[in-house]
Write a protein that binds this DNA or RNA. Structure first.
Lengths: 247, 247
DNA sequence: TCAAAAGTGTTCGCTCTACACCCATGT
DNA sequence: ACATGGGTGTAGAGCGAACACTTTTGA
């Protein structure tokens, strides 16, 4: 009797599944892409990785890195795939930012896109330049992109400005070893302000998340600064909320 | 000659469009829904508006308010439509929170969903209870929902906790006229802490965004408090960043 | 008169801010 | 020797945190 019940239960479950599947098949559907805003930092400037638009309609214009989501992968996986394909890196900071669902954002018909933001050390990877050009562009110099990618970029930039004041993300953009000057330059570039050097250094000293690696800068035309690395382990362990770096 | 050039240009543009359309038609596509987490506040508790799951597979379980995005509407419009249909309100605080793209989140096949969070005054609307039950549930009491809606709810709750400390959103959850006690209860409910009454009042007094309406609470079994309303106009004008209410 | 919440100020400690001089290195 | 950025400390202001008593109303 128990068996019968179980079987009946299983059968009905199967039936429910079948019904659900039949229902979903009636749904309107839309292509979904993932677009990655990939930030880097070099020559004291915030950089963005762009590719030539592959759609002829936008010929000559630059574009974010984006691809269609594949049927078997979830959103994060799609974003990692795009990063991996283009930069060869897979241990990269990545976060979903916002979804853009305007009807006319793609000239060929409706395509929904989920925007991700990624931060990486610009020297730590090899760009995979295949058929399309892939280049780092100074964020400040970007005025126009294909699709609605400029809007997506601006959203991600605002997100980054806010985020970097609440979490120590900046280190993802720097080499393993960096000077405090480089770190400050990074913050100044992203926040688009000048910061007081002594207060900045005090701030980071008080966080106690920088490890003095006992080395110095080289090849600088002035007194070399100490090099530090970020204590990722310690940061993971401490659950200290970073709400407000408060420059 | 100019005309010819223009015509050629137009023609080629049309062709580009046609090509783009042909391309998009080859894309895999996915049904997209919008799910709304609708928060209210009543009886000193944070509430969430839920409906009985309409999918038989989840029979008996509660569900967020969600519907498929229609072909002609963008995401925000879909979210407003859902709100309007169910609550009759259209001047409501609403914000996109996160997109969920897990492969198995719908038993009938892949359905992507964009989660929105809405805040409304629980007394200001008439629920449209049609075929499904529509009820306010205490947030704290919700342990299970259909689909991945519990996960979505939790994300939206975290979002709300953070957001309410950076922007004066709370007023959307209160009646037009409210006492400082009600306001504090609201913050305490959302942040799940106790706050110091004097500091709380000082904080809001110093923001200078509350208008004393010259009335008092009635029907309270103790000394009645003054009633205030929130100065939405003044807030809109002042661009003061609210980063950090810092309780 | 009692219960329950309203209303109100002050002190302390911490953190942010502003600010200037000497040091080490390369040219 | 000079130019360039590295490295450091302190005083003042402002803000958040802690904390207790009197007042008003309804029961």
């Amino acid at each position: 009797m128990k068996k019968t019940n179980t079987n009946q239960h299983l059968k009905s479950k199967e039936e429910l599944l079948k019904n659900a599947q039949a229902l979903v098949e009636t749904y309107d559907s839309v292509p979904v892409s993932v677009d990655c805003v990939i930030f880097g930092f070099d020559e004291n400037e915030l950089k963005v990785l762009l590719i030539r638009a592959d759609l002829e309609y936008f010929k000559g214009m630059w574009s974010l890195l984006g691809e269609l989501m594949l049927p078997h992968e979830n959103l994060d996986e799609a974003a990692y795939r795009i990063l991996k394909e283009r930069t060869g890196m897979d241990d990269v900071y990545l976060d979903q930012v916002k979804t853009f669902g305007g009807i006319h954002r793609h000239p060929g018909g409706r395509v929904l896109t989920v925007a991700y933001c990624s931060l990486l050390n610009i020297n730590h990877h090899q760009l995979k330049i295949t058929d399309h050009e892939l280049h780092w562009h100074s964020f400040q110099s970007i005025t126009e992109l294909s699709f609605d990618h400029k809007e997506i970029l601006d959203e991600c930039y605002k997100w980054l400005q806010k985020r970097i004041q609440e979490h120590p993300l900046g280190f993802n953009l720097l080499p393993d070893k960096f000077s405090l000057r480089e770190l400050q330059n990074l913050y100044e570039a992203i926040l688009n302000t000048k910061l007081d050097r002594r207060n900045f250094r005090k701030k980071f000293a008080s966080m106690d998340l920088l490890i003095d690696v006992g080395e110095m800068e080289a090849d600088v035309p002035h007194r070399p600064g100490k090099l530090y690395k970020f204590d990722f382990d310690k940061y993971e362990k401490s659950n200290r909320k970073w709400i407000g770096i408060d420059f």
